[in-house]
Amino acid sequence: MRKYSSHLLYGSFCLLILIAVQENFLNAYLQLIIMFMGVNIILSTSLNLVNGYMGEFSVGHAGFMAVGAYVTSVLNVWLFTSDRVFGPAVLPAGSVIYLFPVTLLMGGIVAALVGLLVAIPSFKTRGDYLAIITLAVNYIVKSAIENIQVIGGARGFMGMRNIVSSMHEVVNVPWVMIWIFAGTGFSVWLIHRFVTSTYGKGIVAVRDDEIAANIMGVNTRRMKMVAFMLSSGLAGIAGGLFAHILGYINPGSFTIMKSTEVMVMVYLGGMGSLSGSVLSAVGFTIILELFRPLQVIKWVAIPLLLILLMLFRPEGLLGHRELTDVFPRLRRIFVPQGKRA
């Protein structure tokens, strides 16, 4: 029973929200915030894999997100709608409700392949130099998209609204919300399984002492590749979902500012803490909304917040610990019996 308590809790939470949405208890604005929370959770947990658990310093997460967003969106528009550029629909529009996860996954896979661009240089270099490489990849992705006119170039790409509405035509439930819940659950589940296994802990060994890890039997190159690809793939999935919340994307949404936002979430929650990343993604989404009336000052206040955090609690809210370590009582509910911390 305990083994599945977190799954059950998450499942019932999602169901509750979905019912609330269906019965119009939640207005569109609140729905939007909840959906952004989901996307942010995927982004922060996936970046934490590289920046927290593996101790690298990737500053270009939004680039991978962009790849996923564009691949999924273009695939969907090409397959399921009649479009001026891509011609008539290839598949019946209704089938999108089954195939959306597939296109989403495709976006993730392509993003993971772009992640190789970062993973391979990381064999030879790390730290500051790798930071620049990730930054460069972010810019490369953004300017590549800006230069591909077929998908709208700098103007952006739209048509995802039609995809969403053709989902609604089949069954009228909040589809995007459902996919986001599924994606968020999937991502946290995946990362949790990864970092709690001996295999996945290899990346923590890489962070602590890469040379020792390699000599003591960890295939450091493979671990780096796996971690970077997993991280960027999940960011791609987050991007695909993000595109379908808005129904419209442009390269300007995936700048270094977006990457910075994700980094803030990771460091706010604590490096190497999965529950910390989830919490900070939720908290940060709310803070972002609360600060919205401040307009520009928002982007003075948020960095200031992080600076103060670095000064007074540099390890972040949780820092290498999980909620169950901070509140041991939670362990009774969430940690299966007979498992060592």
Binding site: Y199, K201, V204, A205, D208, G217, N219
Partner: peptide
């Protein structure tokens, strides 16, 4: 050169990586 943010037990586990 131990892995300092991993527990002693985890240190002993991870060194078996090549036998996974």
């Amino acid at each position: 050169r131990l892995w300092n943010t991993l527990t002693v037990f985890e240190n002993l586990c991870i060194s078996q990586h090549s036998k996974l």
